[in-house]
């Protein structure tokens, strides 16, 4: 049990998780503000204006950073939720199997949610 929880912990330690969770939140906050700014100052948002907005190296890098931050934030959060609730008390002896399944599903989802936006963003080209 201890092995599973330690290996699947994203960071080396609770302290690292704690810091990552907060740093990633700040990144996501800034990225969110940036998006809000864009939508607020752009009268008619369509595909072209969106592409234009994202089509700079700075925005591509920022978006990548935000997506990675989101992944870390989500994983730490979901891992924590899993280790809180997927417990022997509710799931019986096989709870580690449930926990592992839950974590694989979470990781899979996060993997998709990282690849998909990144592939979209990096395929944009201003030609």
């Amino acid at each position: 049990m201890a092995l599973v929880t330690n290996v699947t912990s994203f960071g080396r330690s609770g302290l690292a998780d704690f810091v990552l969770q907060r740093v990633s939140a700040v990144v996501l906050g800034l990225y969110g503000l940036c998006l809000v700014g864009f939508f607020a100052t752009t009268p008619n948002v369509d595909h072209a204006t969106l592409v234009g907005f994202l089509d700079s190296l700075t925005m591509k890098a920022f978006t990548t950073l935000a997506v990675v931050a989101l992944a870390m934030h989500a994983w730490i959060g979901m891992w924590t939720v899993g280790t809180d609730y997927v417990r022997r008390h509710y799931f019986g002896r096989g709870h580690t199997v449930y926990l592992a399944t839950y974590q694989v599903v979470c990781l899979g989802a996060i993997f998709v949610y990282v690849l998909w936006p990144l592939s979209v963003v990096w395929q944009i080209s201003g030609s």
């Binding site: 929880t5 960071g11 330690s13 609770g14 302290l15 998780d17 924590t80 809180d84």
Partner: peptide
């Protein structure tokens, strides 16, 4: 106390 559980829960 640095692990993910002892304090950080």
């Amino acid at each position: 106390l640095e692990d993910p559980f002892s304090v950080f829960r």
